[in-house]
Amino acid sequence: MTVTITQNATCTFCGCVCDDIELHDDGVKIIKTKAACSLGASWFVNHTAEKLYPDALIDGKEASVDDAVEAAAEYLHRANMPLVYGLSNVTCEAQREAVSLAEKIGAVIDSHTSL
């Protein structure tokens, strides 16, 4: 087992976004963290590169990502007032794409800020 050490990793668990975390990983799991708080450490350790969930689900049944993307596009295209919501645990780059999608389908776009 080779362990890779990454310096100055960024934790996105809470709004502090600490960027001084040291991570030790074996390629599949993060086995050790340094400088992270208890919340950050469990965030890193509990997310692995294992395939624990199906690629996609349509009506609760396993499906391919292609079919799920197509179904999502169909539902969103058909809607008169769709809602795009969340955006909190994704990157700014993904948020930007979400705004673009919201504009295309004529949606309301909102984040946790409004709660």
Partner: peptide, 28 residues
């Protein structure tokens, strides 16, 4: 004190793309 990881980013991205920070309606 922002809670979730990148909720501040959501405000920023919505601000520079739409002019408003959250709850933006693009229906029209």
């Amino acid at each position: 004190m922002r809670g979730h990881g990148n909720v501040a980013g959501a405000d920023m991205v919505l601000r520079w793309t739409t002019g408003y920070p959250f709850g933006v309606n693009l229906c029209r």
